[in-house]
């Protein structure tokens, strides 16, 4: 997933970027409110982590602008202010959760994953599609109760499909959401990854979870549907 971090403290910004990458997310990092607002409104963001005390546009202003433009991705507020007035104001403006500094990185990652999951309509971290069972928190993937070994990028693609089931997802969209801004992936990489995923998820081609829609992209079919 593509996660935007808007944080003016360089050390914390870099640290968050590394931690999110370790979790398999693509990241955009903004050091001030002006850049942050630009990324937040112009880039295909799946989740934004916004510090409230920012130079340039403040965090509250960024949240307001994002929601005014009709963008619905989850926003996690990162704040040094622990008073309820600010928390309530941020939530009323359209933030979805907050984490107060200082925080444990595991807690932040858990909140990020929970928000991504909730935004896709999944209440629990365990998601089931026919014979496939994915734990979005531990990133365990099981097919008919057997643990599947997926590479990091294979998991990223599968997770994106699971969070956007029954939707047409183009190759460009996958590139945008799974790669960092400055990455220049080979266009064939996505096809190769999807081919490998199909073999692992459906070795005997019995339920064919990933459809190819010629000229448009792919669609992950929820077997339950």
């Amino acid at each position: 997933m593509r996660i935007l971090v808007i944080e003016d403290e360089e050390a914390l910004r870099e640290l968050l970027g590394r931690a999110l990458k370790r979790e398999g997310h693509a990241t955009d990092l903004a050091a001030d409110g002006t850049d942050g607002l630009h990324y937040a409104t112009e880039y295909p963001v799946d989740l934004a982590i916004v510090d409230l005390g920012l130079p340039g546009h403040g965090g509250m202003e960024i949240i307001r602008s994002v929601r005014q433009r009709g963008l619905k991705y989850p926003i996690l507020v990162l704040t040094a202010r622990s008073d309820w007035q600010d928390k309530v104001q941020a939530l009323e403006l359209g933030a979805d959760d907050y984490v107060t500094k200082p925080f444990r990185i595991e807690e932040l990652m858990a909140r990020v994953n929970a928000l991504l999951r909730r935004s896709a309509g999944h209440a629990a971290p365990e998601v089931r599609f026919g014979p496939l069972e994915v734990n979005l928190s531990s990133q365990d993937v099981r097919l008919e109760e057997q643990l599947l070994e997926l590479t990091s990028f294979e998991y990223k693609v599968l997770e994106y499909f699971i969070l956007h089931p029954d939707q047409v997802v183009s190759k460009m969209e996958l590139n945008e959401h799974l790669y960092d801004e400055d990455a220049d992936p080979d266009s064939n990489v996505i096809e190769v990854i999807i081919g490998r995923l199909r073999k692992k998820l459906d070795p005997d081609s019995s339920w064919q979870p990933i459809e190819t829609l010629r000229g448009r992209g792919y669609r992950f079919r929820s077997a339950e549907a």
Binding site: E9, A11, L12, L16, A80, R81, K101, P102, F103, R104
Partner: peptide
């Protein structure tokens, strides 16, 4: 709060 808690957040992380 911002000035003190952000470095603390870095240390904590």
């Amino acid at each position: 709060a911002h000035a003190l808690k952000t470095p603390l957040a870095v240390m904590r992380s």
